[in-house]
Design a binder for these strands. Structure first.
Lengths: 118, 118
DNA sequence: CGCCGTTATATCTAGCCATGCATAACGAAA
DNA sequence: TTTCGTTATGCATGGCTAGATATAACGGCG
């Protein structure tokens, strides 16, 4: 199956990777769930890791992508800022554009891979 | 300095990454030096690591990208096969094409990053 | 025939990173 | 005021990976 072979394209920004596929997915999950911990559970990663990723993003950009609140109803939560939404949207657009631009070559390339990964 | 911030684009093929920026560079070094160990030295990595990477590539593709010889003059050596050269050339082309397609957005993006990485 | 540098591979060790655990602060709601 | 789930952060253990080390085979060449 060539289905399992997933040619992936990663756009990495900044020295310690301000944005990448993983962080983009996390941002999505935070936006959807409204909290870092829920996003972490959903993505099956430790809260610590999720928080660290969010922190890296917040510090890497000019302005925070995620704003958090302690206490209150539900114990608090997190939301993706308008700026964060713009960043995410732009990143997704870049991903699509880049992927589309090399789609043909990508298919060609997978043809050169061995049948069985093992 | 925005110079240090290097937005990089990685094209990853296959489950355990049949080809990526690092492997492409290694392939280049092997072609240039004529041996895995010399390439490893040049890239400042352990011979083991270099050999492992080459082995992964060779097994991931339909046909080996690198052919090796034991013993003989100079103790042996390694050379990038014609197939390997084609794969490398295609990969580089893809890199360039993808990078060019999002160059404008990439610049735009770096403008959103914080001045200081720390 | 010994020398040499390389390929190829096994094994051991050290260091690092992630995970998990613990804890404190927080604030709305019951 | 107690409860609750979350943010935020420190700490320690463990697992995994990278590197170092060792060794054998190889074969042209002096």
């Amino acid at each position: 199956m060539a289905g399992q072979i997933k040619p992936r394209l990663r756009i990495l920004l900044g020295a310690d990777i301000a944005m990448g596929p993983g962080k983009a997915d996390l941002l999505d999950a935070v936006a959807r769930t409204g909290s870092i911990s829920a996003a972490a559970r959903e993505m099956d990663m430790s809260y610590r890791r999720a928080w660290l990723l969010v922190d890296t993003m917040n510090r890497a950009f000019r302005s925070p992508l995620v704003e958090t609140a302690k206490g209150g109803a539900g114990g608090g939560g997190a939301e993706v800022t308008a700026f964060g939404q713009r960043v995410l949207a732009r990143y997704r657009a870049m991903e699509l554009k880049a992927a589309a631009s090399v789609a043909a070559e990508m298919r060609e390339f997978t043809r050169l891979l061995a049948e069985r990964p093992g």
